[in-house]
Amino acid sequence: MPDEKGPDHSRRKERSRRAILAATRALVAEEAYEKVTVEAIAARAGVGKQTIYRRWPSKSAVVFAAVLALSMDEDADGQSVALPDTGDLEADLKLVMRATAEEFAAPSFDRLIRALNTEIANDAALAAEYREKLAQPLEEAKKARLRSAQEVGQLDADADLDLVLEVLYAPLFQRWLHRSGPLTAGYADSLVDATLRAFGP
């Protein structure tokens, strides 16, 4: 008899995982979040709901896993995160901020992130996991790029990097959260310009 824990079994588990996460993203993009159920995710993915519950304890955990896999390019385990470093801080930040604005403006991503934020606001354990697995690694990657800019004199050597990131990202998040204006490339560029004026050498 074939070994149930061998390579074929591992491949089947990985296919199921990817199918579940893809189904979650698709359903959240299509439906009101409160109408999305684990049963619906299982049906869309072509698996039994117990397959989902064996891996994730709740719908919110599946949604977080879907966001994490998307953010980490479908490989959340052990993948490092890095920002571009061409030697030109302004160009690199504008590239990243434009991509961020475009991502948040995309309807499918918008609904997925709003769903995740709804769960985080009401689930302290999920908020802690989000911080550990997604927010903190991204922040450390951003700080690493800012430190390299400090080393070559493109950023104030005494700048508080946490504050730099807040000035850079918080207005974009606020505009997205409150739907108070368009998330355009021009807006992303203006945030970079303002941040560099505030924290330049």
Rank of each mutant, 00 (worst) to 15 (best):
F64Y: 14
E140C: 03
A61G: 12
L68E: 15
K59S: 08
A61E: 15
R111M: 11
D85S: 09
E102W: 00
L83Y: 15
A91E: 12
L112E: 06
A106I: 00
D77N: 08
T86R: 09
G87Y: 05
T118Y: 03
N122R: 13
K94H: 09
L112N: 01
P57N: 10
Q79R: 14
A115Q: 08
T86W: 07
P84E: 07
A101F: 02
G87Q: 04
K94T: 11
E90K: 07
K133L: 15
A76K: 03
T118N: 14
R131E: 14
R131W: 01
V62Y: 02
P137S: 07
T86M: 11
P57T: 11
I120L: 15
K142F: 15
A91L: 12
A91P: 07
D77Y: 12
E103P: 00
S80G: 14
P107H: 01
P107W: 01
R131H: 10
D92W: 01
L89E: 04
N122C: 13
A128V: 05
F109P: 00
A65D: 09
A124Y: 02
I113P: 04
A61Y: 00
A141P: 09
P57R: 13
L89W: 01
K143M: 15
S71C: 14
K133S: 13
S60L: 06
D85C: 07
P137T: 03
D123Y: 11
Q79E: 14
G78L: 03
K143Q: 14
A66Y: 03
F104D: 03
G78F: 03
S80D: 11
S108M: 03
E129T: 12
P84H: 02
P57W: 00
D88Y: 08
S60H: 09
E102S: 14
E140L: 15
A101L: 05
A106C: 03
K142I: 10
E132V: 10
L68Y: 05
T86Q: 08
E129D: 12
S108N: 10
P84Y: 01
A127C: 03
T118I: 05
K94V: 13
E129K: 02
Q136W: 00
